[in-house]
Design a protein around this nucleic acid. Structure first.
Lengths: 190, 190
DNA sequence: GCGTTATCTTTCCAGTGGAAACTTTCCACT
DNA sequence: AGTGGAAAGTTTCCACTGGAAAGATAACGC
């Protein structure tokens, strides 16, 4: 027994995990569908049944990513500083998802599994921005400013551009950055 | 006359330009070497002589990118706000270069044509950070904060994540963001 | 002139993503 | 219980890719 059943039974999840690992090893395009299928012990066309094509697999990664992302931001609570830190933490802990999510040419952003989750995340981010500025004309700018900083730090960190600072914990670092830049206009518990 | 000479005479530059255009159209990995060669009217192995392989071509793009980048930052002068705006301007105007430069798994970061130019750019950025904080213990944090914001805004902009704000000029927007976040600790003309 | 060298071509190969047609298993319904 | 799909996988096929190898052509130093 234990010999592979005709129906894998779990192929979708296994392929997703294999893709996440491959992305972590060699970037979001540095691998082949056939090799993932081989690792999963399945023929190279089997995944097509679950994802359609390679883009479909990446679309599934992005969809799962935005889901997890929205959940992580929600769990961070209402404080904008915590949201920023959660943003960075997500990028570091789910780097494979993250590296696909913000590269829309790799997948189908309009896919019904992607768009709503992305919108959910965006809503939380802009809610966080409102905490930074009571002036509605400004909170959009504040939102984009904070979002940009969290995103840029995460991206630079993941790409290794901040390698000389690699000894310190990214989340702690992110908190410092955010405080430095936004602490002065953070009217806490508003 | 005008018929293609055996020696193209200019292949290196033509291939680089073709690559930049292809990257602009479909991302840093959404094209094939063979198609670029076809566009250049040359056999599919001709480029190998100039770049070695596909990674070599991307390495050349990154090298040129960091050169232009360092020059652009230098030209921005000493004011950190101007450096930040120059950062964003470079990303928007040289988006193909930019999209390769910070994705080191796509090329050979240690290549002698890349590393010095990148170091040059990094030096200017950290000089800009010092203008933000006279305290040497803090200027590193300030540098990374400003760098993160400029980088994140550029990346989000290029990826289309800020699409709802697309009507406004990115450089102007970048200036607003930077002022909001760092204006309070900017001791101008220090 | 003439040999060397840089540049480009042709030919070849293994590997890729995907389409098509087929097989095996599962499941719902009489 | 038996059967008719539907779901999940397989094998086979094709055009295309990146790269290696070996040969052709032009340019340049001497």
């Amino acid at each position: 027994m234990e010999q592979p059943a005709y129906h894998h039974g779990n192929l979708r999840r296994v392929m997703l995990d294999a893709a996440l690992q491959a992305i972590g090893e060699s970037g979001p395009t540095g691998w082949s569908l056939r090799e993932l299928a081989r690792r999963a012990g399945v023929s190279h066309t089997a995944p097509a049944h679950h994802f359609g094509d390679k883009t479909g697999l990446l679309t599934a990664v992005a969809a799962e990513g935005f889901d997890l992302f929205a959940a992580a931001l929600e769990a961070a609570g209402g404080d904008f500083l915590d949201v920023g830190v959660a943003y960075v933490r997500f990028a570091v802990r789910h780097r494979s998802h993250f590296q696909v999510m913000f590269r829309p040419e790799l997948y189908r952003p309009a896919d019904p599994a992607v768009a709503p989750a992305r919108a959910r995340a965006a809503a939380i981010l802009s809610r966080g921005g409102r905490a930074l500025s009571p002036d509605p004309a400004r909170d959009r700018v504040a939102t984009v400013a904070a979002w940009s900083m969290a995103h840029g730090f995460a991206d630079l960190w993941l790409s290794g551009a901040l390698a000389d600072a690699a000894e310190i914990d990214p989340e702690t670092y992110a908190r410092e950055l955010t405080t430095l830049a936004f602490g002065h206009l953070h009217h806490s518990k508003a």
